[in-house]
Design a protein around this nucleic acid. Sequence first.
DNA 1: ATAGTACGATAGTAATACTATTATATTTGC
DNA 2: GCAAATATAATAGTATTACTATCGTACTAT
Lengths: 228, 228
Amino acid sequence: MDRLLRSIKLEINEKIYKKDPQSSELGKKIIEHGILLIHELGFEDFTFKKLGIQIGSNESSIYRYFENKHKLLLYLTSWYWGWLEYQLVFSTNSIQDKNLKLKKAIEVITREIEEDSSFSYINEVILNKIIINEYSKSYLTKEVDKENKEGYFTIYKRLADRLSEMIKLVNPEYSFPTSLASTILEGSLHQYFLRDHFTSLTECKESNSVTLYFTELVFNSLNIKNNG
Amino acid sequence: MDRLLRSIKLEINEKIYKKDPQSSELGKKIIEHGILLIHELGFEDFTFKKLGIQIGSNESSIYRYFENKHKLLLYLTSWYWGWLEYQLVFSTNSIQDKNLKLKKAIEVITREIEEDSSFSYINEVILNKIIINEYSKSYLTKEVDKENKEGYFTIYKRLADRLSEMIKLVNPEYSFPTSLASTILEGSLHQYFLRDHFTSLTECKESNSVTLYFTELVFNSLNIKNNG
DNA sequence: ATAGTACGATAGTAATACTATTATATTTGC
DNA sequence: GCAAATATAATAGTATTACTATCGTACTAT
């Protein structure tokens, strides 16, 4: 990662923001401290007013970047999935063997997040926790179909599609490659949530056990020996 | 179902409500129209004031039954999982063969919901849609650990546990029975959501395909031939 | 006949989720 | 280096939400 990503700007659907937060200092501050404050308060209790106080700025100034906190969440989640997509492509691109490629993909998607210094104002570890706790709320709304049409979820869908394609490569006969891909993406977040709050509902306590669980799940489903 | 259930009252943690809604006409109206209105407006836009207008009653009267709409959601979700648990036990109890038992369990949990006339004031089909769209919001909160300790999620956990036990019976060597159980429960809701809003992310379009998908997933994971 | 409970009506509060306006500070273009 | 454009801050204001509190009335149980 490190150097390479530093020069890349993740492209996020322009309709999500009113003004590009990557274009100014205040914008970056909104993202940086938005992440920290959503994590601290939870999405329900998070407000632009509180964020304004936190960054010594005005509520109305934040509204110039985002229409509302829902759009900010969409921005953060898009960014996260874009960042993960990049890692997926980067890590799997050079792998020839289909099985190993898929195995690596599952690892990248389900592993625990480490800090990535490429984006100084974004704490990926905290952002990942926001994704675990708040991502569903970005699409479990009455506006989901409209917002989907606007393309607010394209990055996530592209990521799911990439994973699905890798599954198809391993076993073209399998009937549910996309369902399986979406199960891995959502299910992985869910297992991490259970680990933190409902310990009795998961066996994934150790650091790499989520990866192990999904790797087994997928390769057994595809009736392929999980080599390694 | 029908007759048998009619005489059974689902027991819901008393801390969830201030006054038992099953104990009065108004209480039942709150539940009945609460379900319809949450479905219509979505949980975010749903308020007790609006519900009061809908049932020709007063906002403050509803507050005498539930502290807030979050508690109402907890009540509804507890009721739903209790209802499903009952069906699970009822449908699988007499099955001796472990594999068939698990197969039936997966079917009950992942199948499409049909109206159950046993509870006249509860529309199970609509309630199921609320579960699909809103269940996550009941636990993706900052208060989850406190509320979990209060026992607000016991019914769901008991259901997951029952499923997990059936999985263990089929293959006691399998390392992730509970994770698999929670994946089925959550994943099933998610596949139905995808079918309605993100068609490109699932192959489950037909009525019984969610069941088929999870049945295959589970039996392949347990390395047991899915007989039937 | 009376005490208790349930419900409805009204009022009130603090916070939320914004919008609008104006003033000031900063940047940029020439 | 100055004017114009742009960005931000400050303030005010609105409708709605999410409640709490009080009071009067209606029904109900003894």
